[in-house]
């Protein structure tokens, strides 16, 4: 088992003919993902390798039965691309694009309310169910198929670091999700924690947060109430100065809100095992989850 995506997921790629879109589509195909369609307005009838390209998401869904979209559209047009996918009834939308204006994402988020689509991202590495399908830009080889650990993170390369340490300890993953580093995103920690809790193959969860906002605090409270599986938490940015945007648009300490220390305290208070030193995360997982 896994959450959100698996070997039956039928992927379409919005922005498939761009440089990034092409490169990462090929990587996904090589990993075994079923890439069934691409969308680039004005390029219907063409093919990217063996993947047919359509003008619109609706056309692509109708012709191929795609149920998941991966978005590589540049920031000025990305909000439009997400809404197009949702309007076409795509169940799972994974937005990789970094740098979408906050106001655009707030509109998207309200647009998605009441719709059936799930948005992952934006500004995220994507989602992978090791051995089944990879939808995103993460290096597939560092993952170990078969579970039993679920990983959810606000970061990209930091997630790779965490997964790599798990794999080095011989611990496999059910599904790894990057929910993105933007202040306004689709799927949040709680959605993923809930899904991992309900997934019979997942026996433990690693949650990787960072400074800014209150998502980790809310997730900690949810874990206390609803998650019975062991959770290991990590927070990046303890040394970040207040008021500065640390790369990720969402990673900013405002006043007394969003500090790493506050998040760690909240997580500990809710029974989460907090890893204080990233260098030792793999060992800590081995001792808490067993092998």
């Amino acid at each position: 088992m896994s959450i959100f995506v698996n070997k039956n997921t039928r992927l379409l790629v919005q922005g498939i003919t761009g440089k990034e879109g092409q490169f990462h589509t090929r990587q996904c195909v090589a990993y075994g993902t079923k890439v069934v369609a691409g969308v680039t307005p004005g390029k219907a009838g063409q093919k990217m390798d063996d993947v047919p390209v359509f003008h619109t998401v609706k056309d692509a869904v109708k012709a191929t039965g795609a149920n998941c979209s991966m978005i590589f559209v540049p920031p000025p047009f990305a909000a439009d691309a997400i809404m197009e996918a949702a309007d076409a009834g795509v169940e799972m939308i994974v937005a990789i694009t970094e740098g979408i204006p906050v106001m655009d994402m707030m509109r998207v988020k309200n647009f998605l309310a009441g719709k059936t689509s799930r948005l992952i991202g934006p500004n995220c590495p994507g989602i992978i169910t090791p051995g089944e399908c990879k939808i995103g830009i993460m290096p597939g080889v560092i993952h170990k198929p078969g579970g039993p650990i679920g990983v959810v993170s606000r970061s990209g390369t930091l997630t790779y670091e965490v997964v790599h340490q798990l794999t080095c300890q011989g611990i496999g993953q059910t599904t790894c999700i990057g929910i993105g580093g933007d202040p306004v995103n689709g799927t949040n920690f709680i959605d993923c924690l809930d899904a991992f809790q309900k997934d019979s193959e997942t026996t433990g969860i690693v949650m990787v947060g960072e400074i800014g906002g209150t998502a980790e605090e809310e997730a900690a409270e949810f874990i206390k109430q609803h998650v019975t599986k062991p959770v290991i938490g990590f927070i990046a940015g303890l040394t970040a100065p207040p008021g500065r945007r640390m790369g990720h648009a969402g990673a900013i300490i405002s006043g007394s809100s969003g500090t790493g220390q506050g998040k760690i305290a909240a997580m500990k208070a809710c029974g989460i095992t907090v890893c204080e030193n990233l260098g030792t995360l793999g060992e800590l997982c081995a001792s808490v989850f067993g092998k």
Binding site: V208, E210, F234, A236, G247, H248, A251
Partner: peptide, 8 residues
């Protein structure tokens, strides 16, 4: 490379 890893 990457903001989260840079902070960590």
């Amino acid at each position: 490379n990457g903001a989260g890893l840079a902070m960590a």
